[in-house]
Computed example of a mutant assay.
Amino acid sequence: MLKIVSFTCNACGTDGDDSPFVCTVCQLIVHKTCISFPRSIKLRIHQHPRIIHTHHLQQCNSRNKYCGICRDGVDTNYGVYYCQDCDFVAHVNCGIQYRQSNTESDEDERSITMNDEFIESSFDIIREIKHGDERIIAEIKHFSHQHNLILSDEFSTDLKCDGCMLPICTPFYSCTGCNFSLDKACISYNYHTCNHSLDVRCLISTKDSIEHSGHEHPLYLAVESENRHCSGCGVSAEYGTFRCVDCDFNLDFKCATLPDKARHRYDKHPLFLTYIDPNDYQYVCQICEKERDPKLWFYRCEKCDFDANPECVLGKYPFIKLGDSYIFDNHPHPLVLVEKIEDYPACHDCGKPCDGLALECHRCNFIIHWKRW
């Protein structure tokens, strides 16, 4: 009969009441299940190829005291998974839960990074102009469009960037012959070394930590976000948060990627994302005219004293560009993406009214739900 003892496992750092394995030379005490832990693992949420297991984080000269997955503290006297390239630390059990399978980790994957190689190869400079000592790129050939793009600052309230699908508020590049525009930030993104596709906004999720103007401390990606409410919108986070380890502050992915500036037809000026309400009297969204929570983020125009909820400013479909044309084999003419908000015609596929997003032919009486195509 093996003796049952209470102990703290040196491999994973958790307590146990069991019959552990013990090293009589170095006094190492380990759970039975921890014997089979892999020496190194690859994580889905970490950019470097592998992180290794160590029994003593203090010996690695690490300054990190927080798990990169759950963001709770780690005891440096016990075992963790550790990345020596970036001082990333994870509880053993967190690392095992979110590691990739052996098949996935054995693949030749390259980390997604923004370096000079990607930035330079995403576009070719066609024309530059000099403004004092500054050289301004006035015309480019971008990999995502067949025509040259010209630098412009002529704003329109309904103009969206074809890269991130957010309203354009800064000087941007546009095609003079097509309904195609890119803001200056989005011309840098290009992936030609692998077959992976990634939304421009999702680049933020490839980082372990971010700096956000809405909070004074760094925010760390925490996969474990049970019972955590987003400080920006107040909604319970479903898939993880960017979390402050110093105070009770969390951001879900939606709020972490809200644009700093936006536009709406109700106001001729840019609207700025605002984190602290300067008013003590006006708690109404001036678009939907409903009461809003002053503790939550909103968009504001100081010149007009105009406040509005983010969802009202950005709209129901903030990352879809209306007016784009699509060619399909099932219909002889181009179909245009539209939003039907009144006089709903019947869908040619299901026969129900087309309310919301639809594909419409401007040459014949054809319309179909976007989701039905």
Results as ranks from 00 to 15, higher is better:
residue 151 L to G: 00
residue 171 P to E: 00
residue 91 H to L: 02
residue 305 D to P: 08
residue 214 G to I: 03
residue 291 E to V: 14
residue 211 E to T: 13
residue 192 H to L: 05
residue 194 C to D: 15
residue 266 Y to L: 08
residue 131 H to V: 08
residue 360 E to H: 14
residue 350 C to F: 00
residue 353 P to F: 00
residue 273 L to G: 04
residue 65 K to E: 15
residue 313 V to W: 01
residue 301 C to T: 02
residue 10 N to G: 01
residue 128 E to P: 05
residue 168 I to E: 00
residue 256 A to K: 06
residue 50 R to I: 09
residue 206 T to R: 13
residue 81 Y to K: 00
residue 90 A to C: 11
residue 224 E to L: 06
residue 132 G to P: 09
residue 180 F to W: 10
residue 110 R to W: 13
residue 85 D to Y: 13
residue 169 C to E: 00
residue 56 H to A: 07
residue 253 F to W: 02
residue 37 F to D: 03
residue 355 D to E: 11
residue 239 Y to N: 09
residue 145 H to V: 14
residue 203 L to K: 09
residue 260 D to E: 12
residue 48 H to L: 15
residue 345 P to Q: 03
residue 112 I to C: 09
residue 182 L to W: 01
residue 309 N to A: 13
residue 90 A to V: 08
residue 206 T to H: 12
residue 158 D to L: 14
residue 261 K to R: 11
residue 90 A to E: 06
residue 247 C to Q: 03
residue 13 G to K: 01
residue 266 Y to K: 11
residue 253 F to T: 07
residue 79 G to Y: 00
residue 117 E to Y: 13
residue 164 C to S: 00
residue 136 I to Q: 01
residue 254 K to S: 14
residue 168 I to G: 00
residue 161 C to V: 02
residue 295 K to D: 10
residue 239 Y to W: 12
residue 14 T to H: 06
residue 246 D to V: 12
residue 14 T to A: 02
residue 151 L to F: 09
residue 235 V to Q: 09
residue 86 C to D: 09
residue 326 Y to R: 07
residue 37 F to N: 02
residue 278 P to Q: 12
residue 260 D to W: 07
residue 62 S to D: 07
residue 171 P to L: 01
residue 244 C to L: 05
residue 3 K to W: 05
residue 311 E to P: 07
residue 11 A to P: 03
residue 180 F to M: 05
residue 179 N to M: 13
residue 178 C to G: 03
residue 155 F to L: 09
residue 292 R to K: 06
residue 88 F to S: 04
residue 124 D to A: 08
residue 107 E to Q: 14
residue 16 G to E: 00
residue 342 E to V: 09
residue 178 C to R: 04
residue 91 H to P: 01
residue 280 D to Q: 14
residue 57 L to M: 07
residue 195 N to R: 06
residue 160 K to Y: 04
residue 327 I to T: 02
residue 76 T to Q: 06
residue 192 H to S: 07
residue 152 S to H: 08
residue 247 C to I: 12
residue 45 I to C: 15
residue 62 S to T: 08
residue 74 V to G: 01
residue 175 C to Y: 01
residue 39 R to L: 10
residue 340 K to D: 14
residue 196 H to W: 12
residue 229 H to N: 11
residue 132 G to W: 08
residue 191 Y to W: 12
residue 287 I to V: 05
residue 315 G to I: 06
residue 313 V to S: 01
residue 283 Y to L: 08
residue 364 C to D: 07
residue 5 V to Y: 01
residue 268 K to V: 11
residue 240 G to T: 02
residue 21 F to D: 06
residue 110 R to Q: 14
residue 194 C to I: 02
residue 112 I to K: 11
residue 38 P to M: 04
residue 109 E to Q: 12
residue 308 A to I: 01
residue 123 F to L: 06
residue 348 H to E: 15
